[in-house]
Design a protein around this nucleic acid. Structure first.
Length: 670
DNA sequence: GAGGGCCAGGTA
DNA sequence: ACCTGGCCCTCG
């Protein structure tokens, strides 16, 4: 067939001929079905041959209808037995999916029992045609190596110089509290690590939990690098600007990208360093299928590219501790001497010793907390009061010693369905009629207190004449001035006080500590550290009062500022009890029959245990919703994900009516 | 997801 | 002889 000679009567356009060179495109089609999670081959028409490169968006006819897709590769021939269809249309010659990100997305899909198409939907922002025609901006010049503050940590200077020399160290970093003007200086350290990596001629990606952290890191990078050397990616930018910045990264106009969760897939070329700040924040968990976590994505990326990794935070997760204990990463932590200069003085406040002042007692302030606050206010400093959000899931604990009650069989949390029912396990559904508390032997259970919000008015009455500001879900304050005021904030919404808070009060700690969640202790410590880090250093008068029993491990960890000690303890406990990250878990949920079908289909790897199914009450459902947990040894994680994906594929090929949600590493283990 | 083939079991 | 639903397969 001679090119252009034949016209198709029906379509009225030139008959297409395949490209002479590499005529086959391997395409990932955007269909959400597990059994179609493989590339499909299409012929590349000769007229677009030079623009169909790996990573471009195309439209293809798939099973009769037009769908979007990404070209994964151009190859010489196909091993598909049938005839190939042509690509219907090249959407844009912009190669938005780099080979590195495609390989990462495949690995993430495999780890989370999801499909490549699902991950690509998270990884590549929607196209905005006008942004593609923006003129290319010049690539910024080399970065000079400036002064840095990593010498605050014994292993910090070595980490920094390794980055500058083009090596790829991996570290779990316990950031020092205090520092720059009361805000903490972690953004400066991250910016210096970014600069060192850029200096070595490599790219960098840093991910933070929320917009406020992003603003602070953005400002630090602007100071350290100067203008134009980095971009911040966040959903708040809007689609056009987001896509424009994404393209600047992909085109190599900037070599450093920072952002919130979705930026974990940013196509930074030649990665030298991946940074994750505060990996315990649940904002790092993507809520859309296949529910990847930024920490796992970035660690996978470091593994695949050979880049350095920096997992930083004030507190430390059990997952980060595991990286240290397996030797995958090295620790960066300050000495006790440095900590004494930088950390505030932390004291547990005894709930039983309420302040004598009646208004303070009414606000349930222990005398120690009341005194610390009053002294700070009198000295003209702001006081931060952290109160947990309301609405924690009810759980059951021992009446006598308040130890959360756990199932004797699988370790899952016990729950009471009604006031008179026998407590049952939320994981495996077994009843616990003969429960006895492992701590004190008590046999009576009660619903643990849900977080009660202290109103700002209550505290205001305890400190008459002092202005009270609030920062929470509805209106979050970024800063407060360095003057006498009470600042009531929910966790994650604490404003930065210029010069640091004179005192920080951590209230209603039972609401955090008695949550059913597996990570209750870890999460409490993480939130306390984040608030306490905003206090002035102890030598400058900074005080923190945590209203909780000083004998509890998370409280001790805060008092001694030893997040590593707590994480190590936590990981040991989880190994003993068979909880993540010592094991891998997957949650399967959906209508009863659908879940049963999936469980019957799945070929579980050796050592797997199924807990449940138990019914879960989801509002709006018809009451048949159930959940099962599958627990396997860590080494069987990939096999479990593959088995779940295969079983989901059988169901989707059968056009099974109801979907079963599969979550590997479910964020919440109820 | 759509479309199609095959088969069993029903109905006219 | 015809219709329907269930099951399974393909899709490039």
């Amino acid at each position: 067939v001679s090119p252009g000679a034949v016209r198709s009567a029906s379509r009225g356009r030139a008959a297409r001929v395949p490209a002479s060179d590499l005529p086959v495109a391997r395409v990932c089609v955007d269909v959400p079905l597990a059994h179609l999670d493989r590339p499909f081959d299409y012929l590349v028409p000769a007229d677009v041959a030079d623009r169909v490169t790996p990573g471009v968006r195309v439209r293809v006819r798939f099973s009769g209808q037009l769908v979007d897709g990404f070209v994964l590769d151009r190859v010489g021939s196909s091993d598909h037995a049938g005839t190939l269809a042509y690509l219907d249309r090249l959407v844009s010659p912009e190669p938005v999916l780099t080979g590195e990100v495609a390989a990462l997305a495949r690995a993430v899909a495999d780890r989370y029992a999801g499909t490549l198409a699902d991950v690509l939907r998270l990884a590549v922002p929607p196209r905005h045609a006008r942004a593609e025609s923006a003129p290319a901006e010049p690539v910024s010049a080399a970065v000079e190596l400036g002064a840095h503050g990593w010498a605050d940590y014994p292993t910090g200077a070595g980490f920094h110089s390794a980055l500058a020399q083009g090596r790829s160290p991996r570290a779990v970093w316990s950031a020092l509290p205090g520092g720059t003007g009361g805000a903490g200086d972690w953004p400066d350290r991250v910016a210096e690590a970014v600069a060192a990596t850029l200096h070595s001629g490599r790219g960098v990606l840093a991910v933070v939990p929320d917009a406020r952290d992003l603003d602070r890191l953005d400002a630090a990078l602007s100071t350290v690098l100067g203008p134009g050397r980095h971009v911040a990616l966040s959903a708040a930018l809007g689609p056009a600007e987001r896509y424009r910045r994404f393209l600047r990264v992909r085109r190599g106009e900037v070599r450093a990208a920072i952002g919130t969760r979705a930026a974990m897939f940013a196509p930074v070329a030649d990665l030298g360093l991946l940074v994750l700040w505060d990996d315990g924040d649940d904002l790092h968990a993507e809520p859309r299928a296949p529910y990847p976590h930024a920490r796992e994505v970035l660690l996978t990326r470091a593994q695949l590219t050979g880049a350095a990794a920096l997992i930083g935070g004030y507190a430390r997760t059990a997952e980060a501790q595991l990286l240290l204990e397996t030797g995958w990463a090295k620790e960066i932590a300050a000495t006790r001497e440095t900590l004494r200069l930088r950390a505030p003085a932390v004291t547990p406040g005894d709930e039983a010793q309420l302040a004598r002042d009646p208004a303070a007692a009414a606000a349930r302030l222990p005398s120690l907390a009341w005194r610390a606050a009053r002294e700070a206010l009198q000295a003209g400093a702001p006081v931060l009061v952290q109160v947990p959000r309301r609405g924690y899931l009810p759980s059951v604990s021992c009446v006598d010693c308040r130890t959360p009650a756990r199932c004797l069989h699988c370790g899952g949390p016990l729950a009471l369905r009604s006031a008179h029912a026998v407590a049952g396990c939320r994981w495996c559904g077994r009843g616990a009629a003969s429960y006895a508390c492992p701590e004190c032997g008590g046999r009576r259970l009660r619903a643990a207190v849900t977080g009660a919000r202290r109103t700002a008015e209550e505290l205001g009455r305890a400190f008459p004449g002092t202005p009270v500001r609030t920062s929470g879900r509805d209106s979050v304050l970024a800063h407060v001035p360095p003057e006498s005021a009470l600042v009531v904030a929910t966790p994650g919404a604490e404003p930065v006080a210029e010069g640091g808070y004179g005192a920080v009060l951590l209230l209603d700690t039972w609401a955090l500590l008695t949550r059913a969640d597996l990570r209750a202790g870890e999460e409490a410590l993480r939130r306390w550290c984040a608030a306490a880090a905003l206090a002035r250093p102890g030598p400058q008068g900074g005080r923190v009062v945590v209203v909780a029993d000083g004998a509890l491990a998370p409280v001790q960890a805060l008092v001694r500022w030893e997040p590593g000690w707590y994480a190590s303890r936590e990981l040991t406990d989880r190994q003993a009890l068979g909880f993540p990250p010592a094991v891998r878990m997957a949650s399967l949920s959906g209508p009863r029959d659908a879940l049963a079908e999936l469980l019957a289909l799945v070929e579980l790897p050796a050592g797997a245990a199924v807990l449940g199914p138990v019914s879960v009450d989801t509002p709006g459902d018809d009451g048949t919703a159930e959940q099962a947990l599958v627990r396997v040894p860590r080494s069987a994680g990939p096999a479990l994900a593959a088995a779940l994906h295969a079983a989901a594929g059988v169901r989707s090929a059968r056009k099974a009516k109801d979907a079963v949600r599969v979550q590997v590493d479910p964020r919440e283990l109820l």
